[in-house]
Structures are given as C-alpha cells and as structure tokens.
Design a protein around this nucleic acid. Structure first.
Lengths: 239, 239
DNA sequence: AGACATTATGTCAGCCACTGACAGTTGACA
DNA sequence: TGTCAACTGTCAGTGGCTGACATAATGTCT
C-alpha cells in the first residue's frame, strides 16, 4: 500500500497540510463557519481533492483523535495481566496522556489538538460524532478487557458493562474540561484521576452518609438535609 | 402559543402526518435513502413546509423519542423518595416501558416506534445523534437524582457518575436489542433488567471467581402495572 | 358580513457538503 | 524516453437547509 517514495511523500504532505489548515481554521472561526472550500483554498488544492483525503468534513476533525485512541489502546495492551480491569484502564489512560506528544507531535502540535478537542466539546454536531466514536472504542476495549480476564464478551456482560461505566466517567470529565478554562493536558489528567476515584463509591446505595467512602450504614434520613456538607474531598474543582 | 382552534388543529394534523409518513418511509426504505422531498410529497406539502415543522431531517426521527423520554422522567419524578438512586431509576424505566402506549399511542402506533428505534440503532449518523441526546437526558436525570438525595450536582460528582453508569447499561441493552430479532417492548424490557442485575458485580475488581449473582427475587414480572409499587426488597443493591 | 391583521404555505434563488465522470498532469519504471 | 498508473482539477448534479417575498387561509374586530 505504501507505494513509492516521492509520490507518497507529496501525498503525506498534502494530507498533513489539509489537516493542520482545517484544525487551525476550525479552532479560530468555529467548525460550522468554516467551509471545505476555505480549507482547500488554504492549501491550494481543489475541494475535490480534500474529499479524496477525507471522506467528509468531520473526518478531518477526528483524524488526530484516531491516533490518540490507538495510542491508548496500545498502552492498555501493555499493562501487566495481574492488574484488574479498572486498574489497567486507569494506568493506560495516565500513561497515554503522559506520552501524547510522541503519538501526534509529528503531525500536529499538541496544543492545537487540545484546542481542537475543546472545539469538539462545544460543537453539538461534533459531540454527536464524538460519542459514537467513543462507543465504538468502548466495544474494542471491552474485547480487550475480556481477553485479559479470559472471558467471552458475548456470554459475559461484565466486560462491556465495566468499560461502559469507566468510559462514562471519562466522558464526563472530558466535557467538564472542555467547559473549563485550563486547556492543558495536565488539567484533564487530574480531573480524570479525581473522578475515577469516585466511580465505586458512587455505586453504593447509601448516599446520605458523609461523602467519600460511604460507611455501609442505614438509609435513614434523620438528618435534615444539612447544607453544612463539608466540602471534604468531594469534587471541589471546576467552577 | 397554543393559538386558536381551527388553525392549530390543522397544524397538528400536518405535523402528525409528516411524522408518520417519515417514519414509515424511513423504516421501509432506510433513513438515508429517503429524501425530505419524498416525505413532503407523501403529505402533499412543500419541502419548505416540512422544514417549518422540523428543524432538520433528524428531528422527525426523534420527535417520538422525545415523548418517551419525558414519559420516563415523569415516572422517575413519581418514585417515592425512600428509594435509592438506582432503585428509582430502575423502577422508572420499568414503569415507563409498561405504559409507553399511553405516552405515544395517540400520535404513532407503538409498533412503528419500535421499528423506528431499531432503525436508529442501525444507522450510524442517527446513532451519533441518539447518543448526544442521551447524554443530555443523562444530565437532566442527574440533577433530578441529586435533588432526591439532597445533593448539589456541581459539588458532588456522584449523581452524574451514577447516572452515567446506569445510562451506559441502558445503551448497551438498547444496542443489543436493536441487533436482535425480537423487536417487542417485552424483549427490551427483559434485556434491560438482566443487564442491570450485572451493574454492581461488574465493578468489583475480582472477576476470577465464579460468575455473577444468581437470581434476585424478580418473581412478580407478570404484573403489568407495577408503577407505584414500592417493592421493598431491593436488597440487591446493598453491598 | 366586511375589512384588516395574522399566520401558514408555496415558490424561488442560493449556500454548502458531497459524488460521479471525464480529462489533464505528474511521478514510477522499464 | 515513452508508457502506465496514480493523483488532481473541472464540471455537472443531488440533497439538506435557509432567507426573502408573494399568496392564501384563518382569526378578529366592528
């Protein structure tokens, strides 16, 4: 597939140029206010050529995302088998963020990609596509996890369910991060860690006891909805 | 807003006609192979008129879904406050399915809506929109749950996280149901119950021990209208 | 009932995403 | 260097969607 030298090089260049131009335009003018013609003009190719590199306008937005995702999947594959599912996913996420530059730096500056990510989170039509893609990734990850644990994904619902729950947390944080000020990698990394800490406790039924690791007690509401809830280690971040 | 009689009646009729015609065409020919012109022609109005009733081609697909969702939200609002979050959501889902006819029957036959739902699940662009809409619903539900529990959704991450996990399960089942043969309401109802039973076990780290949890007392499945029955045996959620 | 204000609808022109077909150009390779 | 294959541009056309304007239907007031 990777044909001969010069031709291939030019193609690569055109593709990268289109990609960068598109992201630059999208992040400055907004996705919907940027036409494909503009992008093509910026790189001095015809609109038709744009569509030969990218199946549609959305695809160019998620091209980099693709790289990041397979970077994450690779990291997950490398986790030692002793780690439990959550542990493994969590470490994989962390390690993926830590080395994101290696994955995409050649094609696009990390900072531009971060801006692009924020743009996705604030553009309804892109959010939709983003969510569908995430769902597809979930499926892939579920199979991976099932393999690790020696389970059959078609028989045992637990891998899918666990991944779905994990991914849901990731999406919540992604959204919050997108709305926040700090567009840095560190910001989203920390937010993620924070929220993951809350996954299990949130699934307990008894939310009436003090925050944090809930004491497995009663479901008894003698306490008048005290607004004096100490902001303990709950979630004092955004806002 | 709800202006005078005759005008309003005609509008209602046109809207319903467009809705039914659209769903009928979509479910038989497929979404992408149906043009807006076809729909408009079927009802003998201009294309422009179609777009005055529905902002875009997608909206007509989800118009009924809208009704179903608020039906569910209503059911959730009616759950007794003693029920825990999961318990309440679970019962609300069940009761919503049980009475879906009351919610949409006036506008569209339930069977057509079920076919439409399957079509959504098998049309990529619609899946995307569906997921975005679900995410929005999640947010609404999270606030509702937070209210029930006397929590602040901006301070405490647990409502959002819990709802996200719950909703994730719902989506997995929705997808599986869409791929399956049985398009009946009962089928998706049972599938949902089944999967929800696995939510918590899936979050335990140790998956190497035997499989899940044997039956909990779901003995009263035959009862059709269990809407406001506070089944006090939700021991399945303690843990 | 007649006159006037509202509002729904149709028509038309036009933008933009996207595609198939055909022709011209350029790199690969003997 | 000439031939072939692959890349690109141009053109025409479809489908979703919108603004502007004219027309027709309905509601309201006297």
């Amino acid at each position: 597939m990777t044909g001969t030298g010069l031709r291939e090089l030019k193609k690569q260049r055109t593709r990268d140029a289109l990609l960068r131009a598109a992201l630059e335009l999208f992040t400055t003018q907004g996705y919907e206010h940027t036409t494909v013609d503009e992008i093509a003009d910026a790189v001095e190719v015809s609109q038709r050529t744009f569509f030969r590199y990218f199946a549609n306008k959305e695809e160019v937005v998620f091209a980099v995302q693709d790289m990041v995702e397979s970077h994450f999947v690779d990291a997950l594959r490398r986790r030692p088998p002793e780690e439990g599912p959550f542990e493994a996913m969590r470490h994989a996420v962390r390690s993926a963020w830590d080395t994101i530059g290696e994955a995409i730096g050649q094609v696009v500056p990390v900072e531009l990609h971060m801006r692009a990510y924020q743009m996705i989170e604030s553009t309804p039509s892109l959010i939709a596509v983003h969510l569908r893609r995430s769902a597809e990734l979930d499926e892939q990850v579920a199979r991976l996890i099932a393999d690790r644990e020696g389970l059959d994904v078609d028989t045992d619902p637990r891998p899918r369910v666990a991944v779905a729950a994990f991914a849901a947390v990731m999406r919540v944080t992604g959204r919050l991060w997108g709305q926040g000020e700090d567009a840095s990698v560190e910001a989203i990394r920390e937010l993620t860690e924070d929220y993951l800490d809350h996954l299990e406790p949130a699934l307990a039924t008894d939310w009436r006891s003090p925050a944090a690791r809930p004491a497995r007690g009663r479901t008894d509401r003698t306490r008048p909805d005290a607004a004096d809830t100490p902001e303990r280690e709950a979630g004092a971040h955004t806002e």
